[in-house]
Design a protein around this nucleic acid. Structure first.
Lengths: 338, 338
DNA sequence: CTGAAAGCGCTAACAC
DNA sequence: GTGTTAGCGCTTTCAG
């Protein structure tokens, strides 16, 4: 607890003690737009140093009209998928000199809209929004700030959107079960219906089943969380032991695994499991999960670039391929891919 | 892509179309500090509505000297422990009308310091910093903005600090192994030495061992991550199979579990495992982990309160008790506590 | 109850 | 090479 001046030291304090005008201070702080004589600059720097002057970035932003802040709205930043996403976003934003303002919507539509408003009012350069909500139930106003929608499965009028190829990814991982492991069918553990969309993942599952002429086994619905997956697992087992299950997210798969283990079932011997996302948690479950991995880093980079460079993909939507990462939960052995 | 005015609509646009002065608009927007005739207020509100006016919070902050932003600097926001911490911080900050600016230091000291500077320059109301770094290697300047240090094991001169009772928590979970499960010894899997501190956790382990007169079994060091835990697990097994292991974080325990499983070992039958943190991931590993759980929500609340209300605990440090959560990895059965 | 105007800290013409 | 100054959008005192 030192003794500090209660009023922040400003640029004119620096100007005074360096014996120059405020403009000159500005020129040396910003290294332009005018030149400053080396000697003067040195004096200014000295004054800055001794006074402990820090430019007020807020005032600068007001003047320049750009805050160098990017807004990020997520349903739940503690969900590992979003947490990893946020980290990547922060990383590339930081590399480009921007800072991240993060907010959680908890999946609430009003809250989501309010948060975006708030961020826009704070003059963020752009905002990134991930919302599990299907197109019809999206309620976002178009602002004069670039807004890009994350984790989407298709275009959203008025916005730039991006996301993985949910359908192909789901199909790939389900097909793997069907062909390589010769499963007669694959049970689906997916998100809640209604406001939250896992439709394209479901579609991929259905597609794969159709392609190989398998019947549509039952569908179980639950939340996109570990306990959602756990609950689905328990429910599933009431109907009997499935041969194979596709969970629409890693978190759900992890919960499912727990339910299976508790029931004394072995994975993959008794039940094969695959999932969607490929967060690092999926490489450390037991058994390790075979997944369709989303290219989080690329998507994050694309999102930030879209906001900062204002470049919209054709059709307003950009889709990213997923990667089939084969580990042990499907029945393949030996691979310990991280 | 609608057609929007390129210049943001400001308070004076509203004033003009409502036929009032800018002051009145301000009074209406802020519901004070002066009263406005109902009719006038209605006109203003109408103008705001039709123009789609949003106050520039940045300009307001410049004027008022308060941004209602809180800065949060973390080593790695995708680490579930920090991710859950950040979520809680965001939650209580939001409840108090503040927004979170988040940045990752990746454990780099310079970066950490720079980020704090940057946030302070942005006029955040306060800064929360989690840094694994031991006291001696901390390099944070005291600013005129409240700064509270998270996840600390003791006071830090010049700052408010808080953290769990690392020593007691570690001792409790190790003692559980020693007494309830009669383990002859407990191997320690801890963080890297040097710049990153897990000292108080180590101390708790040592204390418990001493209390029950057990020898100090070997110590293995690694990063605070799943792969760090995995590497430690592999290393450990080169020396032989331990009876019991205490990992200083859930993430390390999860990695360790993977190494144990891959070696064909059963947990807890062959090796008992316990860890520190109690993130929700620990409730879904296989087997579920017995842990010393940190009271994340309370700590987050205390941290935000400290920043916002400026109340410093006695001695500048506040310690929070941990909770022993008994699950299966220690050898206890039946409990499926979440 | 309302308006005029100063000024938050900064930048960038525009002068010299 | 340096100084003066207007003004970013907002709040709030001071006059009416």
């Amino acid at each position: 607890m030192e003794d500090r001046p209660r009023r922040a030291v400003t640029r004119s304090d620096v100007a005074r003690t360096a014996g120059v005008s405020t403009a000159v201070v500005s020129y040396v702080v910003n290294d332009g737009p005018r030149n400053v004589a080396p000697a003067t600059a040195a004096r200014v720097r000295a004054a800055i140093e001794t006074l402990g002057y820090r430019p007020n970035l807020n005032a600068r932003a007001l003047r320049r009209g750009a805050t160098e802040m990017i807004g990020l709205v997520l349903p739940d930043s503690s969900n590992p998928f979003f947490a990893e996403y946020a980290l990547e976003v922060e990383r590339v934003a930081a590399a480009r000199g921007h800072v991240l303002v993060m907010a959680n919507s908890a999946g609430d539509r009003d809250r989501e809209a309010r948060l975006v408003e708030n961020l826009v009012s704070r003059q963020v350069v752009g905002v990134l929004v991930a919302s599990g909500r299907p197109l019809a139930e999206l309620d976002l106003t178009v602002h004069d700030v670039p807004t890009v929608l994350l984790d989407r499965d298709g275009p959203v009028p008025g916005f730039v959107a991006l996301g993985p190829d949910f359908t192909a990814g789901a199909a790939a991982v389900v097909s793997h079960l069907l062909t390589v492991h010769d499963m007669p069918g694959v049970t689906l553990c997916t998100g809640p219906g209604g406001a939250f969309a896992a439709n394209s993942r479901e579609q991929g599952w259905r597609q794969a089943l159709a392609q190989y002429g398998r019947p549509e086994t039952p569908v179980v619905r639950g939340r996109f969380s570990r306990d959602g997956g756990y609950a689905m697992g328990r429910q599933l087992l009431e109907y009997g032991v499935p041969d194979a299950v596709f969970a629409t997210s890693d978190l759900q798969a992890v919960g499912l695994l727990r339910a299976l283990h508790e029931a004394g079932l072995r994975v993959p011997e008794d039940v094969a499991v695959v999932s969607f996302d490929g967060t690092s948690e999926s490489a450390y479950s037991w058994p390790t999960l075979t997944v369709a991995r989303q290219p989080i880093a690329e998507m994050a980079r694309a999102a930030v670039d879209a906001v900062l460079d204002g470049e919209a993909p054709a059709g307003g939507f950009r889709m990213f391929g997923t990667e089939l990462v084969v580990r042990r939960s499907c029945g393949c052995t030996g691979s310990t891919a991280l």
